[in-house]
Amino acid sequence: MQAQEAKLDEIVGSWKRDRSYLIEMLQDVQEHYRHIPQQVARQLSVELDVPLNRIFHIVTFYKGFSLQPRGKYPVSVCTGTACHVKGGTRILENIMRDLELEHEGQATRDRLFSVESVRCVGCCGLAPVVTVGGEVYGDTSSLKVSKILKRRRKLEPAR
């Protein structure tokens, strides 16, 4: 609990407690916790004197935030136009089925992966593109991605 407060204090301080950087602060929270914990949202509301409903409005408005924890390695399947015409949408469906996920943003049971579609990562020349934990893989296919994920999972220490 204290650690949480200290972390938030650090984030708010790094933006000089300026309310116009609320979105940036939330981005830092998202990066740290892989989601926006309710508790943190409440604290932020008190710290900055911003209504809680404004914070939730922002968190639910922008795609960059989630209320559920994302996986350790978020898998983003690009469904920008170039990737769509080269089969990106099919890759998304196939990976979700592969990992037994019902909806986008959901994490696998071991919390290793979460899958969602993104609109264009700006690597259209390499379509279709998938990013796994921030690493960009171009010219992929359903099978290639499923191999990448399997390899990733093998490298994780057992728990």
Binding site: S20, L22, I23, E24, Q27, F61, Y62, K63
Partner: peptide, 26 residues
């Protein structure tokens, strides 16, 4: 520099500025 948070509509001028002020980009 202001970082966006993932909303296509923020390319629209008034939405972009709302977002820069720390509000939802409407």
């Amino acid at each position: 520099i202001h970082r966006g948070a993932g909303a296509f509509v923020c390319g629209e001028s008034t939405a972009l500025m709302a977002s820069m002020e720390g509000r939802p980009g409407e």
